[in-house]
Structure formats: structure tokens, C-alpha cells
């Protein structure tokens, strides 16, 4: 079982208390009427399916019932961080790559 840190309850809880809700940070177009069909279609239906770091929306269904975000690795299932709604992720594909490069450089020196 995974233990997931709920940023609102402030502690780790069992996986069975949570539900995944798909990709995070999807912004509804400010002017839906002004959208092209392609823009509106990609907002509604098209999602990234990355191999690697993914930012996801989850909800603490059986606990505080609040939505929050998880940065997760889709291959290793490692959870890098959880953060509240409205916040931006600290861990991204780019930040992980930079950290990896840094440690490689240090090792080579």
C-alpha cells in the first residue's frame, strides 16, 4: 500500500482513502465561445500520457475530501511531492534532470 501525504490533513494516509482524478493544471479557456474546435477539444479530451514525471489531481475521498496535486513518476510510481490547489510543483521533469546532471558532475570530479 502507498502512503500519501495529504497537504490539508498534514499527515500520511493509506492509499485506499484517496482517488485519482487525472491530469492537474488544466486551465479552462477564459473565453470558450472564442475557442476554435481544436482548442476546445484539446481542453476537454486530450491529455498528456508521459513516461516519467506527471502532475496529477487527487482527492482525499475518505478524509478531508479536499482536492490536491501529486507529482508522480509513472514508471517507478515514486511520489515526489504533494501540494495544495493553486500552488505550483517544485519537482518537474526539468528540475529532476538538472539535479541528476549536478550529481553526475560532482561524481566525475
Amino acid at each position: 500500500m502507498f502512503y500519501i501525504h495529504c497537504p490539508y490533513c498534514g499527515e500520511y494516509r493509506g492509499e485506499e482513502e484517496f482517488s485519482p482524478k487525472g491530469e492537474a493544471h488544466i486551465t479552462r479557456p477564459a473565453d470558450p465561445d472564442g475557442c476554435s474546435d481544436e482548442e476546445w477539444g484539446s481542453y476537454l479530451f486530450f491529455r498528456q500520457n508521459p513516461r516519467g514525471v506527471h502532475h496529477e489531481l487527487w482527492v482525499h475521498t475518505l478524509g478531508c475530501r479536499k482536492f490536491f496535486n501529486i507529482t508522480r513518476h509513472t514508471v517507478s510510481y515514486e511520489i515526489f511531492e504533494t501540494y495544495r490547489m493553486g500552488e505550483q510543483p517544485k519537482v518537474t521533469e526539468q528540475s529532476l534532470a538538472e539535479a541528476l546532471n549536478k550529481t553526475r558532475k560532482e561524481e566525475s570530479v
Binding site: C9, R13, G14, E16, E17, L62, G63, C64
Partner: peptide, 8 residues
């Protein structure tokens, strides 16, 4: 004592 959680 003084803690309350909603759980499965």
C-alpha cells in the same frame, strides 16, 4: 487524546 480523523 484530542485527535479525530475520518478514515476507511
Amino acid at each position: 487524546v484530542g485527535k479525530a480523523v475520518s478514515v476507511a
